[in-house]
Amino acid sequence: MTNSQKFERSENRSPMLKDLPPDGGQFKTRGHWRKIWANFRRRRLAFVSLIIISFIYLLGIFAPVIQTHDYQETNLRETQQGPSADHWFGTDRAGRDLYTRVVWGIQTTVIITVTSFATGSLLLGVSIGLAAGYFRGWTDAIIMRVGEVVSAFPDILLIILLAATLRPRFVQFARDIEDSTGMTGLVSSGIVDYVVIGVALLPLSWFGMMRLVRGQVLVLREAEYVQAARAMGTSTPRILYRHILPNVVSPIIVSVSFGIGAIALSEVILSFFGLGVQPPRPSLGVMIGEVTARGGASVSVLRDHPEQLLAPIIVVWLLIFSWNIVGDALNDVLNPRAR
């Protein structure tokens, strides 16, 4: 997450976004979005990137359908094979099909991306940002200070620390639930892993978004149309929802699009260290960690069985690259004045 994250942060911080003037205050219409979409489509590279992203995500979503083998099925008579008709990307040391593992790994990435954004960035980040920006005063001060403490940690350390600390507790908790309710699959399906990773990534995701939204709201709340609405006695939630939120959507979209690559990379790093997704469930990070023996064998693998390393890496690479292109384009399209 280190790099993309830097990117994302700098983006949030850039003066260009900070002093972005509100869009006059009209409620954004369907037509407005259609125009933006048309603008976006004109950017060929961004459009292609969006298609790549969609394609990759679809692979993940439909993993159970398009898999050619079982992701955990070992076949010790077909280990370390190169790509073939039966194994499109070849097989790993245990004879498992790399193509199948990659698509399942993508599914893991999709799930983690969605959950950590849904909870951290969007739900927490946006709502807290709205509250802080609108109410200001003590609410704002407390939120900002807490956020500063959390974000003062070196990100990667905090994420690893959280994942290491939380996992055993969460897993135990889930087992207790399973045992007492007779439910099954809570742990084995990987749900606990997603929750742990999602929570561990919270500090990475919520504060940046919160600060962004808050900054926008601070400007917007002084806007004439908001003042007018307030004067007319419109309730606070309504002002926030109807008048302010729509105008913060653009920067949120831009920020999210820059952050998604970072989330994918975070999962890879966590799983690489054995703190993310648990075997036998595959993830891109698990695959990279396994095949490089946590880094030590990376050179040898790259030399002798490059497909084993490249299969998961190229997916991560494409995702980060494409999201950055898309983010850039969205930034241009949604915030024309920022350029």
């Binding site: 245990a94 054995g274 036998p280 960690g289 946590r294």
Partner: peptide
């Protein structure tokens, strides 16, 4: 799980 490879043996044995 931290450090070495997470246990290819374990996965293979479990699959057997």
């Amino acid at each position: 799980g931290t450090g070495g490879s997470p246990g290819l043996t374990t996965e293979v044995v479990a699959d057997m």
